[in-house]
Design a protein around this nucleic acid. Structure first.
Lengths: 125, 125
DNA sequence: CGGGATCCTTTTAGATACTG
DNA sequence: CAGTATCTAAAAGGATCCCG
């Protein structure tokens, strides 16, 4: 059994360079988590994603997909033909991350009541 | 055994209101994750945190602590005396979230190489 | 259909100075 | 010691128009 030691970075540079920080920040962005959730069930075309997610602008959708692709989380496959179709799907790495994010999402849903209660208490006082 | 179904919100409003989104966004902010990591081992005083985290401005530190406190993740205890001391510590809820975030951080560290390789591939092409 | 380019608004973070 | 107030900078998100 292997033990992984996770040291806490304390300087700005270390913190910013830490892979954990980078992943957390990416996950905390507005759309990537939602895109990864959708792709969990099946692959999507570009406009299909655009329609599936109301309120997401094409600029941001494109930027989000490029970033996910660059990080190896999502694959982009071009199918020639009429009309052309570009297919986005989770990679193995993407699926792996999606599962981690899902665990965090489940935590959030489970503890939502506690958080709301804490806020009510704080705001009341 | 209970089954929790996690539906994917598709509209902007749903997505923004979803507790999972809120938690992810908070976790993705620049400092909360680091603060929670530090508090995992022991409690800290205000200036102690300020010194421990190089490059974090007091304004942001205060705001971060207030938010964590409001969400019930961190407790703030005032010890009267000379000099006065305010002690910040994880609550049970905070500890619970910290463990989740730690799991994600471990994932990030484990898969950092894959992500970097994917980026190199993408940038090369 | 599947984008890229340009311009603008909102959100988040940081610098600096001051206070009970 | 433990903050607050004010102001500025940077990053994320969005609207709109154009193109192969």
């Amino acid at each position: 059994m292997s033990t992984t030691t996770l040291t806490v970075p304390v300087t700005v540079a270390e913190h910013q360079a830490c892979p954990a920080t980078v992943v957390l920040r990416r996950a905390g962005e507005k759309w990537p988590g939602l895109i990864l959730s959708l792709l969990r069930d099946r692959s999507y075309g570009y406009n299909e994603l655009d329609r599936a997610v109301e309120g997401l602008s094409r600029r941001v959708l494109t930027r989000t997909l490029r970033t996910l692709e660059r990080d190896g989380l999502v694959s982009r496959t071009v199918h020639e033909g009429r009309p052309p179709r570009v297919e986005y799907a989770l990679t193995g790495l993407g699926r792996s991350l999606q599962e981690q994010l899902r665990a965090l999402a489940l935590w959030a849903v489970e503890h939502d009541g506690e958080i709301r209660a804490a806020r009510a208490r704080f705001d009341g006082a």
